[in-house]
Write a protein that binds this DNA or RNA. Structure first.
Lengths: 197, 197, 197, 197
DNA sequence: CATGAATGAGCTTTCATTCAT
DNA sequence: CATGAATGAAAGCTCATTCAT
């Protein structure tokens, strides 16, 4: 009798390890052997649950996105005060704590690779789209309750998320001119100066 | 009779090929054999001019940056009309023509890799810094001649360049929601709504 | 309540599947996983009934031989007309119908492998010997009833069975110069010209 | 300056080793690592000269055939006495000396594999065809000079070569009932009884 | 009896690097 | 200066085998 949960458990265990390896070593030095070691399973087990390196990568990219988005959604679930939620969102995405750092590094790898890979493009399109919509909705709500000024909420959301991405990349690249703190101030300045009422 | 320029020529030839391979295949599938083939030299020659794969990569990243910045500098060299120059800069960076696409793809690889490599971080710090300063100066000039509103020019520059990076990454990742055209409108909207006087 | 026949059934089921896999894929690509799938059992079950891959192979080779010989024996059981029985035997061995093709392919694998494996040699020695004797007896009977000319029946049998093997191998190797039809004519020509009275 | 002969030398060196490994271990346990060791080169070198395992196999099968046929052709080159040449041919093919044993074992592997592989079938068709023609010509010459009786020389050749193959396979499979000596007597008996005038 | 999850040794293959020429 | 033959470490992947259930 196979225990029905074991497959989900193993996959989750492997994908978590894969994201860590991806974050620590980059796609460039992403080895299934390292994933196996970190997940505490044999290399055979990885091939038992996934069709190969590429399949692990794909699933890891998706896993990384889903995890972040579900966390953010909790943050914005409650009805009240959308401008405050936006500001909290910004804080949550600052590349400061290990958790956020890992997520950002995995995204950067996904983006770099998606430029030539349709499968990865599809993952990004779907999940980045969810993130974009989440922000768009918050801005629209803020406009509705008068805490944000008028303007196309989708355009404003695109400005905001792109700015966050661009700044985070520089922070993660170890820029001394662009620290997490400076990133925070820059984005909040944008929110205050260009979005808030 | 050693021809003194042959070394510079060969290096240039190899680096151009390296950028093309990097753009076409990504760091992940970056093979010196491919660089050699594209440069029309033997693999031995690459090792004769560079200390190894990593050295070729470093030099290629730097080459890619220098090329772009020198091109942009020409664009902004003349004295007059800094706001117009900013708008032209935005156009020039749109990931549309092959030349710009190649440059963006190489940057994306550099950023992803710089997250774990101090040497690459140093390259990025220096050369991204030049680009940041170029934009900051333009904004300051625009404020000086009254075509841009008041505000910390460095902060505005950071918003702008980060936004451009973030949007370009999505365009390059093949997003159907974020095309080069949409990117253009979004950035210009930001310039009109948050920077211009 | 142990069902006493279940073991024999399972073994038979597995061996039939093994012969099919052997015929379809060759020893070279003979995988227990494929045998299991084709037999409709788990890989664990195969190891429950056999001591490992080699044991399955051995048993499959033997199974293939026994099946063929028992079929041929039926063909030659009745008393009368040994020369006619020889001709029928030839027809029955032509690599034409799926059943005969499978048997031939398994033999070819056995022979190739038996060159280095004493266990397989023993199987071949015993069972090929039965086949040789069956043919020798028929020839001897034909000589006794005057339908075959004189001569050492064992030598004639060796000529005949070797010729059949050698021709079948070329037919199975897809030769356009040696088809099943040509094989038939060649062997019958030998029977008429060198064996029959 | 690449020495022009080095490629041919290396390929020959590797193919000879490949035939030995094939003969000693069979296709089933044919490892490129063993070929490399036996040829005294690295595994990398094998991949430098051949496109992979399959390519080595193909070339080895062909090499084995060409070697045997060119040796036999020398045997039959001189004009006189075709029946004697046929008898010598039989002697030369007896699986006795190491050289002949190796060739036979490699053929057996080729035949087994050719049953499912068109590329191997093509090799067999071409080179076995040459062998068949060589024998056919000898028989026709023997008929012309009156040392062989009438009859379709192609059919007689097919009988003869198939018989040789079938007998050799049993000898190689270690049969105690069919030794090299018995094989010799059997084939000569066929030549005397069915071919010679 | 039978399962299938899990293992890990062992294989082919790739590719940066070296060095004799 | 430049080549390319040769290397060998390291990687992904396969599959016979084991064993808790």
């Amino acid at each position: 009798m196979p225990r029905p949960s074991v497959e989900a458990q193993r996959r989750e265990q492997i994908l978590r390890a894969a994201c860590e390896v991806l974050s620590d070593q980059g796609l460039h030095e992403f080895r299934l052997a390292d994933v196996a070691r970190r997940a505490g399973v044999s290399s055979g087990t990885i091939h038992y649950y996934f069709d190969g390196k590429r399949a692990v990568l794909s699933a890891a990219f998706e896993h990384n996105y889903r995890l972040s988005i579900s966390r953010r959604r909790e943050l914005t679930a409650e009805g009240g005060r959308p401008m405050a939620a936006l500001r909290e969102l910004v804080e949550a995405f600052l590349p400061r704590r290990a958790e956020a750092l890992t997520a950002w590094r995995v995204w950067a790898e996904l983006w770099a690779e998606a430029m030539r890979d349709e499968q990865f493009q599809a993952i990004n399109e779907t999940l980045y789209g969810q993130w974009r919509r989440l922000v768009t909705d918050l801005i629209a709500q803020a406009q509705a309750d008068g805490s944000a000024r008028a303007g196309d909420p989708a355009a404003l959301a695109n400005m905001l998320v792109a700015m966050i991405d661009g700044l985070a990349v520089q922070v993660l690249a170890g820029s001394r001119e662009m620290t997490a703190d400076r990133m925070r101030r820059t984005v909040l300045q944008f929110l205050d100066g260009c979005v808030a009422a």
